[in-house]
Design a protein around this nucleic acid. Structure first.
Lengths: 310, 310
DNA sequence: TCTGATCCACAACCCGGCGTTGTTCACTAA
DNA sequence: TTAGTGAACAACGCCGGGTTGTGGATCAGA
């Protein structure tokens, strides 16, 4: 049974004749006649009485009409339930207060009508799996070889280089510096709790450590950024790295210092990842939005070798 | 959107892979792949994640699955609501106690599983209209030129010649006769209340009157057969005609007499009428049943000229 | 790392169904 | 009888969906 035939049946029942229904449906009367003949053959009953001034429903046609209307209603509802754009765009970010969140806030300001669902997955691997399986629509992550397609038709484009800053308490040896070079950090203890091994940002800091001889400790449990800030503020021997675009709930009276890092500027390379065949219209909108805000790579910055675009 | 595609979608979702679903549906895997690609294109979303060990539903696919099941359920119900044979066969008879009712009782005894809906319309014209419009499936009526198709593809076949009998009270002049000839009835008052002009049985008695010089009165309101029988029983000057196959609720103690009429025997020519294209299977069963019980025309009987078969 | 197994996608081809145009048929009204 | 209305029939072209054949991606096991 063909839904178009059912739709035609309802149109004919309402119009009372084939020709008018055909005009409504923008097809010929002969096509309507054929559709109804086929439908009657499929159902095994006569639905209409053909008369010279039009058609009338038979008993069976009268019984079928409400069923047909219900069928079309359910069909329309089924289509609407998955209509492109009907569900929120699901976006993974590396950090709820990081640069990616800022980009999404910008996007939301520019397109307030688009529903968003921002979440945090564990790492790049999980994110790519989720994109491939359709669980999420896109992700902001540091990716190896941005611009080169990942397996499973996942595409990526580098959208933002976020400079790292040093965060210290007021009693730290570098607290008074206007800026520090990466080389100056050698010998200082950098504490980054929650830097889980195997994740892409752990790999980023591994490369940073290997290249510039830093000391980064990720020991101890991660009690969240508030606890981290408290500890940094109170401990002269500890500093930490923080994305320059991070929006902090700035603890009052702690005297925390954000110190730019230079020579070169280590930047965290955020890429945007999405599935090539994802037809969600809001995804295209987001990509277009990002394209307008994406800056070229700056000289004098450092990223791991694996993160250099091709 | 194609219902077959929706059915395939559900099959794939249950099977977890295209090949198995294809085997279930007795089509090739490629056909399933094409159907799903088309469905995804029509809906504008991806429904499955393709993986080397099968497929998994995306978020949209998960949302669509219950809608698809509901859609198929409604479609099946719609088809069932008009499945051939699912509704009672609607048959018109000229009289609820007459020969046609007897034929339907026989049929019901032979096929107790077939639901019947026996009703009484006004006359042959209304019956033919109802058959053409699909309101009823068949009718037992006296018809002009039985065997010749009526307008609108209504067919007819003569199935039963019902001899008329004279019904008198005990005090009637002919009450003691074993049988009477039509000629003997001339001069007697025949009373037939409810013989509405324009109906085919009025036409029958008009011809009978014209040919044999009878006197038939159809004056007075029709209070039903019980009132008729009471009046006939109590009135020596009145008699009435009655179909020989009529099943009477015989009033006790009234002394009513049923007297056969001969020379020739006037018979009421019951034909069976139905629409040529009516596909109701029970209708075919009924026609087959009637064909076995239909007797040839007997010699020595009378019917109006218009009722002689071609 | 290589190979075979598994499973989906793509390409080429074929056929049937559907819509079109042109025409005929059935019935009604004047 | 004739004109008008409306559905059915016939012939034809084209698109969609089926098939076979093949390629590509992934995973298990040697």
């Amino acid at each position: 049974m063909d839904l178009e035939a059912v739709r035609t049946f309802v149109a004919v029942a309402e119009a009372g004749q084939f020709q008018l229904a055909a005009a409504d449906l923008s097809i010929t009367q002969q096509a309507v006649s054929k559709r109804m003949a086929t439908l009657e053959r499929d159902l095994g009953v006569r639905l209409f009485t053909r008369a010279p001034r039009g058609v009338a429903l038979t008993i069976d046609g009268q019984a079928f009409l409400p069923q047909a209307r219900e069928l079309l209603r359910v069909a329309d509802r089924a289509v609407a339930s998955v209509r492109a754009g009907s569900r929120p765009l699901r976006i993974d970010v590396i950090n709820s207060r990081g640069a990616a969140s800022g980009l999404m806030r910008d996007f939301h300001r520019a397109h307030p009508g688009i529903e968003l669902d921002v979440l945090m997955l564990l790492d790049i691997e999980q994110a790519v799996t989720a994109i491939r399986s359709g669980t999420i629509d896109a992700s902001f992550r540091a990716v190896a070889a941005p611009g080169r397609p990942l397996p499973g038709n996942v595409e990526s484009v580098r959208v933002l280089d976020e400079p790292l800053e040093l965060l210290t308490g007021p009693a730290h040896a570098l607290a008074g510096a206007r800026s520090v070079t990466v080389a100056q950090l050698a010998g200082h203890r950098i504490w980054m709790p929650g830097l889980a091994p195997g994740t892409e940002w752990a790999a980023y800091y591994d490369d940073l450590v290997a290249e510039f001889g830093l000391t980064i400790e990720s020991t101890g449990p991660n009690f969240g950024s508030d606890a981290l800030l408290d500890t940094i503020a109170d401990t002269p021997a500890l500093a930490t790295f923080m994305g320059g675009h991070t929006r902090l709930i700035w603890p009052a009276g702690h005297g925390l210092r954000r110190i730019p890092v230079t020579g070169p500027v280590p930047v965290y390379p955020h890429s945007f990842l999405w599935h090539r065949d994802n037809p969600h219209p809001a995804l295209a909108t987001l990509r277009a939005h990002l394209a307008t805000t994406t800056a070229g790579r700056n000289a004098g910055t450092w990223v791991p070798n694996w993160a250099i675009p091709h």
